[in-house]
Amino acid sequence: MLWRSNYTSDSGKTFYYVSLYAGSDWLPEIYQALATKGKGFCDLPASINPRYALITTEDGNTAKIEYPFAPGTAEWFLFWQQIEGNPLIITSKGIGETVKRGTQ
């Protein structure tokens, strides 16, 4: 499912109304509060691959959640706290933002 939110890159640049993919029924409350269901009005530049969480639930399903919160922010800490506090999620892993070489 597509969600839209403002995305703050690791370098601190904010992109507005970006489309993010979150294929999960186990989205943290902070995500649902700060993102809106539906396609955004723009995409991130092709040079940026957004950060995301990979989760596995107790029934063996896996999901990818692209998230807009920059590492170290209050929202980022709460996002991970809510994922780790969900008893239905048995594993989680964060994959950081990547920027193609030679771009900003």
Rank of each mutant, 00 (worst) to 15 (best):
M1D: 10
M1H: 11
L2P: 09
R4Q: 02
R4G: 06
R4F: 11
S5K: 00
S5N: 07
N6Y: 00
N6E: 01
Y7M: 02
T8Y: 00
T8P: 01
T8R: 10
D10A: 11
D10W: 14
S11T: 14
G12V: 09
K13E: 06
T14F: 00
T14V: 14
F15K: 10
Y16R: 15
Y17Q: 15
Y17F: 15
Y17C: 15
S19F: 03
S19R: 01
S19H: 00
L20S: 05
L20I: 07
L20A: 02
Y21E: 09
Y21V: 13
Y21K: 11
Y21P: 07
A22Q: 04
G23E: 05
D25P: 07
L27C: 06
L27I: 03
P28H: 06
P28A: 08
P28R: 06
I30T: 07
Y31H: 04
Q32L: 13
Q32V: 11
Q32S: 11
K37H: 10
K37S: 09
G38S: 01
K39S: 09
G40R: 02
G40W: 01
C42W: 06
C42P: 08
D43L: 11
L44A: 09
P45Y: 02
A46H: 08
S47R: 05
S47A: 13
I48H: 07
I48M: 09
R51F: 04
Y52D: 02
I55F: 07
T56H: 08
T57S: 12
D59N: 15
N61L: 12
T62E: 12
T62D: 11
A63L: 03
K64G: 09
I65V: 08
I65W: 08
E66F: 00
Y67E: 11
P68W: 03
P68R: 09
F69Q: 01
G72K: 00
T73S: 10
E75S: 15
E75I: 04
W76S: 13
W76V: 07
F79I: 04
F79L: 12
W80G: 15
Q81R: 14
Q81E: 12
Q82I: 04
E84H: 11
N86D: 13
P87W: 01
P87C: 03
L88R: 12
L88V: 14
I89D: 00
T91N: 14
S92N: 10
S92C: 13
I95V: 14
I95W: 06
E97A: 08
E97T: 01
V99T: 07
V99E: 11
R101E: 15
R101I: 15
G102Y: 07
G102S: 09
G102V: 01
G102W: 04
T103E: 13
Q104G: 11
